[in-house]
Design a protein around this nucleic acid. Structure first.
Lengths: 338, 338
DNA sequence: AGGGTTTGTGCAAACGTTTGCATGCGCTTC
DNA sequence: GAAGCGCATGCAAACGTTTGCACAAACCCT
């Protein structure tokens, strides 16, 4: 249907190869012919067919990106970081969502490979280093974000982020600090928990299992966590949450129970969503360098595409952002319901 | 680099066409051969090349989706709606972001066309019905979301949504209702404003220009709007906001100024972000049927792809969700600063 | 036993590009 | 004025697939 190089050739009275060369600015085509052909291409509304071209050049100039879901605030600057560098190197970036579903994730990677994408960047992978086994099925470069078990990856040092967050609470005088975790077994959750435990230990605070809660990283599960913590005999004076959504849920539930944050209880989130700085109270949180994360991911992928496979997981630092949701431990604190 | 149909043919001692037919389950290939070839394809890690196939079938099974930015909460269910129906019909959906930049939007559409996508769905278009002029440059089906000036589109009836919202405020007794608009000149903004004016008029409330504010649809601009409204002699008793982010900004600024929502002032948003139901107070807002919006957009696109061009813009209803941020008008109300 | 049908496979063209090589032409150079 | 050269262009193969047509072998029916 679309107009092809042959149509232009016919209209210009030259061969298809001349048209191709003219459009690619080949030195051995006369200026006159180039001008004429370009004019014609313009008039006929010609757009080259990348599939056809890629067949011979073996290059699609396409990067696939697997995201969890289109509305994840974590993606905003990350995708931007990827796109900026990709564009500079002549690649286009296309996204497709996995919904954190392993089957679907593989389906998406397969879709990219079928289209012969030059490489793939994956966030929130459910497969993780399983890709090492799948390399014959997916013989294209893959870079993972926040999976340090896979050799081609960038990850944020969440252990250090968690340490900073909990240390901040300890320095404010808190000793009964709840840990509201995320989906069970996830590495990023383990890192946060490890940081939490390390700081408690370093400060000779004994770990109290009733202060550990396994959530899902949603507002809803934050609400549940806080409500649960209000039922135990000695409620915590501070919450260290898996992410900002959880923190929002916690704050919400505490406020509904009549408590004030941070007067009666401190809350720390993780991620630094845009919302975190605008919530009421604004939320103390751990920021991941998402833009840089994207930049590094695409850089590693480009290296991989160029054949350099001598790479290691790259670590990026996390940063504590102190805002209004944390304050000195209070004497009153939370009153348990019952 | 990748293994091709020819490699399998060589290994199986048959011709490439037999391999192709075997893999496509052609009826005239013996079961024995099919089994042997499939086995081989599996072992060699063969994945068909869609670019090559599409060249002859003239079908890429690919839908492009232009989004504003990967983190727009508006996209969550919309993309899902698109993907579900697309998948059922054998298409994959890929997204790329325009950042609300006209130049970049065209670049993305061009990228999809170069890759011979079967069609494109665009949200937040800066070009709008300009695509009618560009149809020779982009001879592929395009469906716009929320642009009713373009014949192939689905849009939400924001006029009605705005009317419901403002009427709700009027029924609560409010008469000094501020309108905090979005980016100037946008159609969706005009609709909201029209609904606002209609309801005022129908209730014999004279329009007061000092209660009109042009914002940008961000939290920040909501903050500015509210701060400004606190400086005028007779502050509003209610805010009708362009979107939920603006509403959050407004609420935030009011609270910082010592006011309580909804006791001293009511606030209505637009969009029903997940956050809206979890903010404190939870936000009365207008919900767009985003999932349905996506479903209808892809359905129209599929029609278009099948050659049915006898279509009209389709309208979907908006729905008012009443929550905590609105209440009866108070006697005290907001006190102007100065 | 001979014609017809069915069954399984291969040949070759085509899709829209790119690109190495060949070719034809006009110009310079001795 | 012939040889050589550079310039502009065309021919044809190739990329990985699909598919109409041809073909050969095996089967069936009378």
């Amino acid at each position: 249907m679309s107009v092809s190089i042959k149509d232009i050739a016919r209209a210009a009275g030259v061969s298809p190869s001349t048209v191709s060369r003219a459009l690619n600015d080949h030195p051995r085509i006369s200026q006159a012919t180039k001008a004429r052909i370009r004019q014609l291409a313009q008039e006929l509304g010609y757009t080259p067919s990348l599939p056809a071209r890629s067949l011979v050049t073996r290059h699609t100039a396409t990067i696939g990106m697997v995201i969890t879901t289109a509305a994840d605030p974590f993606l905003a600057r990350l995708v931007q970081g990827v796109e900026e560098t990709a564009e500079k190197n002549g690649y286009s970036v296309f996204m497709s969502s996995s919904y954190r579903n392993a089957e679907r994730e593989l389906e998406v990677v397969r879709a990219f490979h079928e289209r012969r994408a030059s490489g793939v960047i994956i966030t929130g992978s459910q497969i993780d280093d399983g890709y090492l086994q799948l390399s014959s099925q997916f013989p294209l470069p893959i870079v993972l974000i926040n999976c340090r078990a896979y050799p081609y990856s960038v990850y944020v040092d969440k252990l250090s982020g968690a340490r900073q967050a909990v240390e901040h609470l300890v320095q404010l005088g808190h000793r009964r600090i709840a840990f509201i975790g995320g989906p069970h077994g996830h590495r990023s959750n383990l890192d946060r928990f490890a940081g939490y435990r390390q700081i408690l230990e370093e400060n000779n605070i004994s770990q109290n299992d009733s202060l550990i809660f396994t959530g899902e990283g949603t507002i809803e599960s934050g609400i549940q966590a806080a409500r649960h913590m209000l039922t135990i005999p000695q409620p915590p004076t501070a919450f260290f949450c898996f992410n900002d959504l959880t923190a929002i849920g916690v704050i919400r539930a505490l406020q509904q129970a009549g408590a004030e944050v941070p007067r009666d209880c401190s809350v720390v989130g993780f991620d630094d969503l845009e919302m975190a700085s605008h919530y009421c109270p604004s939320i103390t949180t751990v920021r991941q360098p998402t833009h840089r994360l994207g930049q590094r991911a695409i850089s590693i992928l480009l290296e991989l595409i160029q054949g350099n496979s001598n790479l290691q997981p790259e670590r990026l630092p996390a940063e504590l952002i102190v805002r209004e949701s944390t304050g000195p431990v209070s004497e009153a604190g939370l009153k348990p319901y019952a």
